[in-house]
Amino acid sequence: MPNNIDQIFKEFAEKLVLPADRLKPAIEKSRQVSEWAKRKIKSHGSFFGGSYRRGTDIPQESLKLHLLLSRKHYYDSNENSTKLLFFLKKRLSEDYHKPVINGGGTVVRLYSPPEAALDLLPTIRISSGGYLVPNGQGGWYKTNPGKEEALFKMKDDNSSGKFLKLAKIMKTWNINAGHPFDAYFLELVVYYRVNDFLKIYPDLVHSLFVSMRLFLPEFLNCPAAGEVISSGTGSGVRQTVLCEAERLTLDAVKETEVKNALAAWQSVLGGNFGAG
C-alpha cells in the first residue's frame, strides 16, 4: 500500500473507469446498432457522448450513443421527443431484446448483463451548432458533446491531469451518499468551482465540500451548450449531505496515520477506496 493518502487517491481515481470487460462488448454493440439504424431508420451516423466522451466515466455508468436522425423524424413525431423515443424503442424491439425507455425518459436502453448498458439518444442536428436530444418531458435539450469534450480536456490539461480525476472522485462520493446530486451537475461543480489544483487530493475534496456547503445554486449552465442543469435535489437534502461530508472529510484530512486516514476516507468514498 502507498505510504501517503494522496497517492492512494490518485491510484483510486485511475481505476474509476468503465471496466474493459464490460465496455468492449457495449462498444461492439454500438457499432452494430449504428449500422442497424442506417439501414432501418435512415440515420445519418452516430457518435459517443455523455461521461464516456467527457472522460468522467465511472464503473457504474452506461455508454451513451447518439443516433443522428433527420429533421423528418423530428417533424414526423410532431416535434415531441417522447414520441420519437417510443418510435425508436418499437423499431429496436424488432431486432433487439427488450429495449426500454430509461434515464427519466431521455434514452432507449439496451442492456445485456454483464456488459455496460448502451443508452441510445435520438439526436437532431441544429443549424446554430450542436444537437437536440430528449429532455424527459417531451421537449428537447441542447447538447454539444464535441465541445464538452474539448472544454473538459482543456480544464484537465490546465490542472495537470487532476480535474477529471477529481470529478470521478466526487461522483463516487455521490453514489456512496445515495445519489443526492445529478451526476453531470456534480461534474460542473468541479468544473466551475475548482481552480487551484496545486492542493493534494484530500484537501481538494474537503475544500470543495466546504465551498458547496457555503453556497450552491439550484442550477448550473452547461458550458458547451448553455443549457441549465438541475442539482437534482432540494436545498434541505443538499445541506444535510454536504454538512456530513464536510465533517467526515475534515476528520479524514486531520488524520496523521495512514491506516486511520484510509478508514476515514472509506466512510466517504466506500470500501473500495484504497483496496487492492
Rank of each mutant, 00 (worst) to 15 (best):
L18R: 00
S30Q: 13
K254D: 00
N102W: 10
L269Q: 10
T56R: 09
A224G: 06
G226S: 13
V205A: 04
L68R: 14
D251F: 06
F185E: 04
G45I: 06
R109T: 12
I175E: 06
L121R: 09
K153E: 15
E257I: 06
I126R: 13
R22Q: 08
P223S: 07
L63N: 11
E28W: 06
N78W: 05
R71A: 13
K29I: 05
T82E: 11
R238S: 15
K24S: 10
F215V: 14
D21H: 12
R193S: 11
A150V: 09
R125K: 15
I229T: 12
A252N: 01
E115T: 13
F87E: 14
P59E: 09
G236C: 08
L68P: 00
Q7M: 11
V108F: 08
I101E: 14
I58R: 06
E244Y: 02
P59V: 10
Y75V: 08
P180D: 03
E227D: 12
Y74V: 03
V228Y: 13
A261G: 14
F12P: 00
A224N: 09
G146M: 09
Y141V: 02
D156V: 01
N80M: 10
H97D: 15
L110G: 04
Y52W: 13
V194S: 08
P99Y: 03
T56L: 05
D76P: 01
A117S: 15
R54V: 00
